[in-house]
């Protein structure tokens, strides 16, 4: 399984003579195999630009991206190999569906990998199973599916390449709570069953807090916070200062602290919140 390393990556947009925008500035990070990295940040914080370097879609202005220690921008072959090892699923991926049938669309990636026919078939069926698309839907036109099904079909198109590192840019945007839950649980399943690394960009702090092992907070193109989920969410006040949302539980404890109660503010899951509550107000807390 692959390890992804980013070394002081900087990306500037804009042609010569035009005002340039530094979208990503001096970002370094290392994602170990099997981790689930949550990426958080405002719109325009450089998240999307950053992740497009991971599979070589964007070339950095300076810095490098290493996959198992090898620079993916070394030559064309290396970049192309990275395309298949790092699967990138964009925001609203359903807008990329184009084939006549769902089956063919999911098979687009594996076909581009020039795999043998039976291997393609195996991967398509496996990916469809992962995203819980019934076989009956595979022969339908992707444009006849419901919104949630389209989203899952599109994600299957990336999963079918069986990437060692799966990068998802806000995979749950615009879905209803049930749809969100389905997507998140299938991502977690994929990681558990294949041992792949997952990088998940999300606006939902709750989701990151619940699923991720590590978290990266981007602010104005720079790394604001990077560490384990515990480390990052214990900085609730800094997250709020950056104008970011914190999990509802953290918010409660932050405002309790503001009112002068001696509470911990590094609480971010319901369980931790309950424990902290019991510590303070539970039986025997105050004798």
């Amino acid at each position: 399984m692959a390890e992804l390393e980013v070394r002081s990556l900087t990306h500037r947009y804009g042609a010569k003579h035009m005002p340039q925008v530094t979208a990503v500035k001096d970002v370094s990070l290392r994602v170990q195999a099997g981790e689930l990295l949550g990426v958080i940040g405002h719109t325009g914080s450089g998240k999307s630009t950053l992740i497009q370097h991971f599979n070589g879609l964007l070339t950095p202005t300076s810095g490098e991206v290493l996959l198992d220690g090898e620079n993916i921008f070394r030559d064309k072959q290396a970049t192309r190999a990275a395309r298949f090892r790092v699967g990138l699923c964009f925001q609203y991926p359903e807008y990329q569906l184009f084939e006549e049938t769902v089956y063919k669309d999911i098979a687009f990636g594996p076909r581009n990998m020039q795999l043998p026919q039976d291997e393609i078939d195996r991967r398509v069926r496996r990916a469809a199973q992962f995203v819980e698309l019934p076989d009956a839907l595979l022969e339908k036109s992707p444009f006849d599916l419901s919104g949630g099904e389209k989203r899952r079909a599109a994600i299957a198109g990336v999963l079918a390449m069986e990437p060692e590192i799966l990068v998802l840019d806000e995979p749950t945007a615009g879905l209803d709570p049930k749809g969100r839950e389905t997507i998140l649980s299938l991502v977690a399943d994929y990681r558990r069953q294949t041992g792949s690394t997952v990088i998940l960009v999300s606006h939902s702090m709750e989701d990151i807090a619940r699923l991720a092992t590590k978290a990266l907070v981007m602010n104005r193109g720079e790394v604001a916070l990077y560490g384990t989920v515990d480390e990052v969410f214990s900085q609730g006040e800094r997250l709020v200062a950056m104008g970011l949302d914190v999990p509802a539980v953290t918010r409660i404890f932050l405002s309790l602290r503001e009112r002068g109660l001696p509470v911990r503010t590094d609480v971010y899951t319901l369980e931790q919140g309950a424990a902290e509550y019991l510590r303070l107000f539970g039986k025997g807390a105050r004798a």
């Binding site: 497009q52 192309r80 699923c89 964009f90 807008y95 990329q96 184009f98 687009f108 390449m161």
Partner: peptide, 29 residues
């Protein structure tokens, strides 16, 4: 284009017919 490239679409190589075919995954969406 980025999304299809991420799925390994090859837009730059090949003859005329191949390139024209490679445009379909972009034009249809």
């Amino acid at each position: 284009m980025s999304a299809q490239k991420a799925r390994g679409a090859d837009l730059e190589t090949g003859g005329f017919i191949r390139r024209a075919k490679a445009l379909l995954p972009i034009l249809i969406p």
